[in-house]
Design a protein around this nucleic acid. Structure first.
Length: 138
DNA sequence: ATTCTGACTTGCT
DNA sequence: AAGCAAGCCAGAA
């Protein structure tokens, strides 16, 4: 279903510039909500409408099953890669991954403004949920 | 309420 | 560098 969380994730992913990428966990952190698995879940079900290849495992590995397609896009966008992706292209063998150390998206101040806006909206919406009792003891 | 299941992470061989 | 075990977070059954 299309919850506020899903919307927030998709909006955020849409901000990631070509040639860069972030890990699922990064998205969750920027969003200030959920964890890597939540983001992964959202991408798996609703990712097709956004640049999904710019979100991947913290290791730099492309999402399972989409390696080939992702690689084509990385080469096309000039995303920094590691390993023998040339072998992968020819034989389908060979390990490679995105070099997140150098290719990780570094949001600009303007980006952070947008990110914060998204995070805040999400915060307000999910605010409707009840807070656990043990969290309220001062 | 409990158990299962992931486009996840991290730490330890 | 690669595989594995645990930890983690939420939604679904």
């Amino acid at each position: 279903m299309r919850t506020e969380y899903v919307e927030a994730v998709l909006e955020l992913v849409a901000l990631i510039p070509a040639g860069t990428a972030v890990a699922y966990g990064d998205v969750a952190e920027l969003l200030g909500s959920g964890g890597p698995r939540q983001v992964g879940s959202v991408m798996s079900h609703h990712g097709s409408s956004v640049p999904w290849w710019r979100v991947l495992k913290s290791s730099g590995d492309a999402p399972p099953g989409l390696e080939h397609e992702a690689l084509a896009l990385y080469l096309q966008e000039g995303t920094p890669l590691l390993g023998r992706y040339d072998d992968f292209l020819r034989t389908g063998e060979g390990r490679w991954r995105v070099d997140l150390a150098s290719g990780r998206w570094a949001p600009t101040d303007a980006d952070f403004d947008r990110i914060d806006a998204i995070a805040e909206r999400l915060e307000r919406e999910s605010h409707k949920l009840s807070v656990p009792d043990d969290e309220m003891t001062v």
